[in-house]
Simulated scan of single mutants.
Amino acid sequence: MTVVVDVETTGLEVKDRICALALVMDDEVHYELIHPGKKIPPEASAIHHITNEMIQEASLFGTSESYELIRSLNSAENTLISHNAPFDLAMLQKEGITWQGAVIDTLKCSKALMDDLDGYGLQFLRYELRLYRQEKDFFEPYGVTPSAHHALSDALHSRMVYEYLLDLASHERLVELSQARLLLSRLPFGKYAKKRIETIAMKDSAYLKWMLDSVMDMDEDLRYSIEYYLRD
């Protein structure tokens, strides 16, 4: 079985926790607000529109339906799918869930299989891949209205991206790509955004070296790619 997961959180720091979780299984969906054990700051609410009043009566993760459901699904036979899987897996890890099955990161797979796009965020792919043309029929059976940064809506869009990727690679290949180091061809940000890293390495290697030294939270695939092209 495939299990698509998406979480909304109180922020992006080590101290932050899940405040909503959605799961999309083969033929059913689950969504639940979670009490994170701390206040949701306004900058987080401004993104996902979950307020402290909304989670006041919600369960803590450890006593939630979500916890029991994901525990029941957490086996080697099931594959977890997520757009930016390391983030969702890390948030689940904070709540005592270490995923036992295979993982497909639709963000990483999109970068690997479609390296000429201008972006890879979930909402960007929604429009770039024209998923919006099918989303009404896709969402309607679940009674969900597409809405960015709503966990269930995002999980359904991640499922749509996964199904799109299956036209480019097999399920097994997507699992492999999600585990492998990814050699990126283009720089995603900075003054050379969208330019080929190999070309930048030849013309302005100092800039790439500066990035390695200065961007502490750099994506591991981007760091690997820069180091790769600087060695050549």
Rank of each mutant, 00 (worst) to 15 (best):
S205A: 15
L152S: 11
L183P: 07
P146Y: 11
D6Q: 14
E95F: 00
Y228T: 05
I226P: 05
Y120D: 10
A58F: 06
A112E: 07
T98A: 11
L117T: 04
V103Q: 00
E163P: 05
K203T: 09
E95H: 01
I226G: 05
I55L: 11
A169F: 09
C109W: 06
K209W: 08
D88H: 08
D219I: 04
A112K: 04
S147D: 05
E43L: 14
Q100H: 11
L92C: 04
M54K: 13
E53S: 13
E198G: 03
I81D: 01
E176Y: 02
M25I: 14
A58R: 05
K38N: 08
D204K: 06
E57H: 15
G11W: 10
G37M: 09
M114L: 10
A90F: 06
A102D: 07
A155E: 00
H83L: 10
F189C: 09
M1Y: 15
I18G: 08
T145P: 12
A193W: 14
L113D: 02
T2D: 15
I104Q: 01
S45K: 07
S110W: 01
S185L: 13
K209I: 10
C19Q: 10
D115F: 12
I18R: 12
M211N: 12
L212C: 13
G101T: 03
D232F: 01
Y120W: 14
L89T: 00
T63F: 09
S205F: 05
D154H: 08
K195H: 11
R130M: 02
L184T: 10
K94V: 01
S205E: 12
A151E: 03
K111M: 11
L12S: 14
A102S: 13
R186K: 14
